[in-house]
Design a protein around this nucleic acid. Sequence first.
RNA 1: GGCGCCGUAGCCAAGUGGUUAGGCAAAGGUUUGCAAAACCUUCAUACACCGGUUCGAAUCCGGUCGGCGCCUCCA
Length: 498
Amino acid sequence: MTITLYDTMTAKKQPFAPAEPGKARIYVCGPTVYDYAHVGHARCYVIYDVLARHLRARGVELKYVRNITDVDDKIVHRAKERGETPTELAARFTTHFHEDMRALGNVDPDVEPTVSGHIPEIVAFVEGLIEKGHAYAVDGDVYFHVPSFEGYGKLSHRPVEALVEGASGRLSDEETKRKKHPADFALWKGQDADAWGWASPWGHGRPGWHIECSAMCNKHCGATLDLHGGGLDLVFPHHENEVAQSEAGNRAPLSRHWMHNGFVEVDKEKMSKSLGNFFTARELFTRYAPESMRYAMMTVHYRSPLNFDVTLDDAGHVMGFPLFDESEKRLEYLYETRERLASIDPSRIVAEGVVPDGIATFGASLGTALDDDLNMPQALAALSELLKAVNELVEGTRRKKGTAPAPALEAATAAFDLLGRELGLGLANAPMFLRALRDKRTKARGITDADVESRIAARKAARDGKDFGKADQLRDELVAMGVELMDGPTGTTWRIPG
RNA sequence: GGCGCCGUAGCCAAGUGGUUAGGCAAAGGUUUGCAAAACCUUCAUACACCGGUUCGAAUCCGGUCGGCGCCUCCA
């Protein structure tokens, strides 16, 4: 097998080739913990979770490192607004971040380094850069000198001159005076003695934005990573600056592979607070199962923008999100299928028989799709084929004298295991998942189980008495309430369609 | 201004030189006391527009129009 991934540095798909075959060390830029994780974070970390799962499924011994940026100006500002210390605020949102990631079904990274836990490493890294002539101190600040690094701009594919042009208009006079070159960026920012910070050879201060990743990559993955990832918006300046710092400091390439995921957009506009089109993951979790969001993230290729529309009522209130509605529906179909598979009458199972294509080929299709630049939409297409085939199998056992071959059922079970392992989907208990979904929908419609069940009982009495007019009238009432009835051999069950 | 991405059937979305992607919605069918679910069929000889290369282009090249992103904090 060869896993091919698009590489930002070379701007083309490349075979993923770790330095040591069979082992990989990947570093993904984590969140700055000053607020709840938003849908963009959810997308990003679901994508890297699938990458991690797939690499492991392919037998790669993986070290997955994802940092937490817990030292940052935004944290300082937000903490001040809230009357908390920056440390408290960061700790709180780190906890919330973990909760959201687990809700999404993401496996924990192997190492989750924090900036606050790596101040000595950061200071040492900056000192090294100064010694090598790539950085200079000015009045308590330290800047990286961009012209001292020849390859600057190679990751984001832009010439230094263009950056100078773009940057010069924004710099304050003070900054211009301090910096030797307009593109130079801060490695260490001096602070007043009473401000949050740490002691350093240049005085009290805090690390600059990019240096923490360079220091933490070094410590946890060595000079050269196998893959570095993050959101598209990190290409410049964050990753470009990391490349400059790390490669200048280590005299070695920072990463063998660069991966960046596309944005989440709302109504075709990049999701951002300033546009007021901002959704946190957990506010959507009140409306949808977190796994529905996970599914939604897989419906689009990871490098493309993921747009979701918001439908509003006349008063401008949010009615729903078609993408998540549809994703939840597909997930419901997945769990219903699992439940049907589990409920096949054992007397209908025969020892011999063919395994239907959709089931037999699932593993290979899934693997091929993910090998090819993590093509998750194609993986979901394979899932659709699997679910259809399983339902067909179940359908067969419900016909007169219908049977299902044991090898096909075993293959289906194995396929679901693989689905869980590779995509992290379908891992919940099916009856519990479906029950939770139904509870959520009855609540949203303002009805109770008792409302439904009393009518079902009345309908049963009417049907037993062959009073089909009355029975149909009761069903019509339920339909008006949003309830669908399913008359089965063992009685009537009900659901609320999404 | 510099760099880059995208435009695929009613909607969402893969594919990217020759062979059914997939989903949602809609319609018909199998099944059912009637339904629902499930399954089957149809919508689908779709690829923004104009040129060019080629035996062959949605796919490669050039241009036009439209949408968007990065260049400043951002996943």
